[in-house]
């Protein structure tokens, strides 16, 4: 009896006759269609991730009466300014790095190398996201320190509705507690959205990458 695998090879060759066939025109039309490849998705999502934190500043309430006015009253506006400058500088650096890595991705590499490059590109964005989340936490921390050092929190925060009658120490603890919880929740939520998006996108890629790595082990 013929070896089964040789039989399989033979059959595989015979199956060529049953393959679909596209015409010149059909193929020609295809080359102008838009790619929906993983790399393209990663590119779009990364752009959103890069711009999202900055778009928040375009909302007037966040920019004007919000953080900066509040920061001024707390006396931490110098710090806020410095952090904003740092944030933008680092963002530009990351965008440059990301673009450089993205350009390096080529379908002509071998499968292992290609996957590695995609992961590296994506890692750049991941580091940026971690940096942004750290900045968010830091800003909340700055506010908490500002409030802790403030002697007249009721006036600074312009609180009404019975807050004036409360024990200032107790009030301070409550406000700081609320801000801490808000800060942590906000960061966790942002982190969850980022990593969920990324995780879903690269699930197949990860599986195949590890399959390849296991072969080399």
């Amino acid at each position: 009896m013929m070896d089964e695998l040789e039989l399989l090879k033979k059959d595989w060759r015979q199956r060529e006759e049953h393959l679909p066939r596209l015409t010149y025109e059909e193929i020609y039309k295809m080359i102008w269609k838009k790619s929906s490849s993983l790399v393209r998705w990663i590119f779009y999502i990364s752009i959103i991730e890069f711009t999202l934190p900055h778009l928040l500043y375009l909302i007037p309430s966040v920019r004007d009466q919000g953080n900066f006015e509040f920061a001024r009253r707390l006396g931490i506006e110098g710090w806020m300014m410095a952090m904003t400058v740092v944030q933008y500088t680092v963002a530009i650096y990351f965008i440059y790095q990301f673009y450089k890595r993205y350009r390096e991705i080529t379908v002509l590499d071998d499968a292992g190398q290609l996957m590695h490059r995609i992961f590296r590109t994506r890692r750049t964005v991941k580091h940026y996201v971690i940096f942004c989340l750290s900045m968010v936490l830091l800003i909340f921390l700055l506010f908490i320190i500002g409030m802790a050092l403030d002697d007249n929190l009721v006036a600074t925060l312009d609180l009404h509705g019975g807050a004036e009658e409360m024990d200032p120490k107790k009030l301070k603890l409550i406000v700081i507690g609320v801000v801490t919880v808000m800060g942590l929740l906000f960061t966790a939520l942002m982190g969850l959205i980022y990593f969920l998006l990324y995780g879903l996108l690269t699930r197949k890629l990860k599986r195949n990458y590890w399959e390849l790595k296991r072969m080399e082990a």
Partner: peptide, 15 residues
């Protein structure tokens, strides 16, 4: 072969 397999293994996402 290389481009086709790379696309199937790495780049292709079911729409």
């Amino acid at each position: 072969y290389r481009v086709a397999l790379n696309t199937a293994i790495t780049l292709y996402r079911k729409s």
